[in-house]
Deep mutational scan, measured.
Amino acid sequence: GAPPLPPYSAGGREVTMKKGDILTLLNSTNKDWWKVEVNDRQGFVPAAYVKKLDSGTGKELVLALYDYQEK
């Protein structure tokens, strides 16, 4: 199953993602919540729920390892 959710501390809205989604990583300075862009929406997802990909394009991409439903 998915890892436990860290307390929400990102101070911005969250976004929903599905397992297998490829998201653009915008900011990973917060260790628990990373800012991503998905379907032209920006928001935060739990860092433990995604994995960085080596895209080779200069853009940082992450793979959704679990479904996440915004609150």
Rank of each mutant, 00 (worst) to 15 (best):
F44N: 03
P3F: 05
L23T: 01
S9P: 15
D32W: 15
T29C: 09
P6D: 03
K35Y: 15
I22C: 04
L25Y: 02
K51G: 06
A2L: 13
G1E: 15
E70S: 14
S55W: 15
L61F: 12
V15Q: 05
Q42W: 11
D67V: 02
G12Y: 09
D32F: 15
L61G: 03
A64Q: 00
W33T: 01
P7H: 11
T16G: 13
K31C: 07
P3D: 04
S55D: 12
P6L: 02
S55R: 08
D21W: 12
Y8P: 07
A48D: 07
G56Y: 14
S9K: 13
K71G: 15
T24G: 06
Y49F: 10
L63V: 15
A10W: 07
V45R: 00
V15G: 03
L23E: 00
G56N: 13
K59A: 13
L25P: 00
G20S: 02
L63A: 04
L61E: 08
S55Q: 11
G43Q: 02
V15H: 05
V62H: 03
L5F: 06
D32E: 11
A2M: 12
K52F: 08
L23P: 01
G20Y: 03
S28Q: 09
V36I: 06
A10T: 12
W34A: 02
G43I: 06
V45N: 00
P4D: 09
T57Y: 12
Y49S: 03
G43C: 04
K59F: 11
A64T: 03
L5I: 13
D67S: 07
E70N: 10
I22G: 00
Q69H: 14
G1F: 07
N27T: 06
L25I: 06
L65H: 02
L65Q: 04
N30R: 08
L63Y: 08
S55G: 12
G20M: 03
P6C: 04
A47E: 02
K19L: 05
A47T: 04
R13N: 14
L63M: 14
V45L: 02
E37D: 07
A64C: 08
K71I: 10
G1V: 08
K31M: 12
G12W: 10
V50D: 00
K52A: 07
G1N: 13
K51C: 11
L23C: 08
K59I: 14
E37R: 10
Y49N: 02
G1D: 14
D32H: 14
N27G: 05
K51R: 13
W34Y: 06
E14H: 15
S28D: 15
P3L: 06
D32Y: 15
Q69R: 10
G20C: 04
E14Q: 15
K19M: 08
K18H: 10
L26P: 00
V45D: 01
P4I: 08
P7T: 05
K19I: 05
D54F: 12
V62S: 02
D21G: 03
N39L: 10
K59D: 10
V50C: 11
G20I: 00
Y66K: 05
